[in-house]
Amino acid sequence: MFEKLIQKGLEKSAWLYHLNTGSCNGCDIELVSVITPRYDAERFGFKIAGSPRHADIIVVSGPITSQSRDRLIRTLAQVPEPKVVVSLGSCPRSCNVFNGSYCVEGPLDKYAPIDVSIAGCPPKPEAIMAGLVRAVEILKEKRRAMK
């Protein structure tokens, strides 16, 4: 009975969980600037959630350093279905300049399938928002697949 409403809900209110796996914080402050008055992602319903249990979209930023590797895996497992993994910037996609360093454990898709990757180092807030809007569509498809 609520299926149509749930689909609308998923589209209109996706909550982000920001996972920083060793990023240089360039992408982190860009992500935070997305919810400032100028770009205001909240008008689309995006809100940064405090715990992975509340999250729909997991925004990963930073090359997966060896310290944050198993924490990343554990936190990604704790997010309820349907979930979408978004890689912010080049680092999670391909470890960027840190490629091949002794403490970087390789791109994100070794541990979780990346649904949307937003390129840019750091990506512009508008790019992040376009990426998130794209991620919401994938979220709805996953929900339909889950049903």
Partner: peptide
């Protein structure tokens, strides 16, 4: 609150979206 922070802010029925989205999520 959004208007007081000079931003557009979510629509008035945003909590309904939040409520039904959470209903659709898996309960762990």
């Amino acid at each position: 609150l959004a208007r007081m922070q000079k931003r557009v802010g979510p629509p008035i029925w945003q909590p309904f979206y939040d409520f039904f989205k959470l209903l659709g999520k898996e309960t762990i």
